[in-house]
Structure formats: structure tokens, C-alpha cells
Design a protein around this nucleic acid. Structure first.
Lengths: 153, 153
DNA sequence: AAAATTCTTGAGCAACTCACTAGACAAAAT
DNA sequence: ATTTTGTCTAGTGAGTTGCTCAAGAATTTT
């Protein structure tokens, strides 16, 4: 039940790109250096995000990557779905990539106990991630050093 | 971001075992047949649940498995953690199996934007699964056929 | 006691995924 | 033309997933 490094790196890369949003482009090695990510691997991630329409790029000597959507329009959910696939913990409760489970003995959706529970989980995850924007995400980076209290029960 | 078949099978098996709780034992092939699970694989799962103290077993001709804790005392979260490991989407926000991420460039826990977001996700997942008991889980099996309305936004 | 039935343990394995690497190529600036 | 960047495709080693197999130990029935 984990997110991949791809998603993690992708989000950390977008963090950097948020900072220069509207300004200059960032080169892959700049992002890789600052965020401690293997540069060739990062590239695949940036390209996936580009294909998905979040990034633009320019080749050549003053080339690099830049955000083309505003950080307020991009949610963590979108990014993770691009890089990691659907959020749902089992595919039969996915709304973006539903697939009937092959071996489930329950005939109807409503009668499967797993679907009820997992559906709740899916909704909870999506609710957070689909409302968490990059702008909010990048905010906590700027607040570096400050301590925010959390109730970590 | 998926749960494994192990967890899925494990939960489905427990569903069957809930029904005979307090009564007779169930043999592995009974569970496997009803829930459509490969029997040898199921066995590994049942044994893991036994080692974790949820199940008892008896060998020999009238042998089988049975629940030894009441369905109200067992949560989906417990089961999934036994079979799949920690719930947290990245290990640096796990409460049951915390691990510092090796390549994270942020010095303090509070300053990592990923931790803030992922911590929320972890809490949401745990909140549902650690309060969802097997008794409630098994309930929706009995209601087979009946349709329960859900707001699936 | 012997035989049948069931759980128990451990090993093995094919297929897949993850995290990354390499290399050839294309475009842009100097 | 050359250098500097991004683009694309393929490959790869390690680890995980989802199972299978086989030998053994306990329990009951005969």
C-alpha cells in the first residue's frame, strides 16, 4: 500500500517548478541536484508530466522545463494518477479505472463487503489528494523551519 | 497504491470464519471453494493470521480453522497490517513502522511538504480501517442483494 | 496400531514491477 | 558546426507477488 518513488520524485520536482512558475525554466539537473533525484530517472518523470499537459519544455542551450498550469489548478491526485495509476486500493472500487475483480464471488457491487470498506478508503484518499493543490503543497516548503502542530493520534 | 491479493483473500476468508464464529471449524478447502481462492496460497494466509493470534487451528480428520477473537475486536486495519505491512503511503509517515526517507532533502519532519500531505492520507486510511471491525464487515455480506445507497461523489 | 485426513513448514518459481541506466537522436543557441 | 540541452526506446538487476510442491506432524477413525 505504498506510493512509488516515481510519484514521490514527481511531486518533489513539481515543488521546485512551482517556485519558478511564471519565471525562468529549470533544467533537469537543477531539479535533480536540489531534490536529490537520479537525473535520468527524473527525466522520464518530467516527460510523463509533460505528456499529461502539466509541463512545457524547451531543448537546446537555454532549455529546461516549466509549469504551464498554475499551481492552484494542479492537485496531488492528478499528479499521482499520472505517475502511479489509479488511487483506489482495489481496482473494483476505482472511479477512474474500474475493473471487475476476476475471482470475487459476490454477484452485485452492492453485496461485496470488500467494496463497501474499500470504497470508503478510496473516497477518503481521493478527497484529500484531489483537493490538495500544488500551491498549498509548495507553501509548506517556504515555511521551512517553522513548526506546525499536528495531532498525530 | 494497491492492497495485495493476500490482504484481499485474507479478508474474504475471515468473512467466512465470522459466520461460524463460536460454532464449528472451517477447513481450508471449504473457505477456498466458497471464496474462490487457490487453496495452497490461502493456507499461507491462514497461517499468518494464526501466528498473529486471530485464528486457531486443529489438525487431523475433524480439523480446520476458527476465529479466536470476536469479530468486534478485529479491525480491517489489523488484518491488512498483518498481511500487507504498514498502511502509510510513504514510510516516513508511518506510525507503526516509521523510517526516515534516505533521499529527502528536507531536514526536519515538519518542513517536508510531502509529509504533511501524506500524513493526512495515512491518518484518513487508518481512521477508516482501524475502526472498521470484522463484525461490521461481515454484516454487509448477510445483506446480500439489498441495495444500499452511497454517495459516490 | 495402522490408515486416513487435515494442518505445518519450507522451499521453489515464473511473471511482474520498481528504480534506475544507457545510448542514439533531435532541436535550439552560439 | 558545435555545444548544450531535451526526447525516445530499450534494457537490466533486484525485489515482490502470487502461487505450487513436497515432505512432515498431529489428530481421528478403524
Amino acid at each position: 500500500m505504498k506510493f512509488s518513488k516515481k510519484s514521490e520524485y514527481g511531486l518533489r520536482a513539481l515543488l521546485e517548478l512551482c517556485e519558478t512558475y511564471g519565471g525562468r525554466v529549470l533544467q533537469r539537473h537543477e531539479i535533480a541536484d536540489r531534490q536529490n533525484i537520479p537525473v535520468e530517472f527524473l527525466e522520464q518523470i518530467l516527460l510523463a508530466l509533460k505528456r499529461a499537459g502539466l509541463l512545457a519544455s524547451r531543448r537546446g542551450i537555454r532549455g529546461g522545463y516549466s509549469l504551464i498550469k498554475s499551481p492552484e489548478e494542479i492537485t496531488l491526485g492528478q499528479v499521482i494518477r499520472i505517475l502511479d495509476g489509479p488511487l483506489a486500493p482495489i481496482s473494483c472500487v476505482s472511479k477512474t479505472a474500474y475493473q471487475k475483480c476476476s475471482d470475487c464471488p459476490y454477484a452485485t457491487k452492492a453485496s461485496c463487503p470488500l467494496q463497501e470498506a474499500m470504497g470508503e478508503v478510496r473516497d477518503a484518499i481521493a478527497n484529500i489528494l484531489d483537493h490538495y493543490t500544488l500551491s498549498r503543497f509548495a507553501l509548506s516548503k517556504q515555511a521551512e523551519g517553522s513548526y506546525v502542530h499536528h495531532d498525530r493520534s
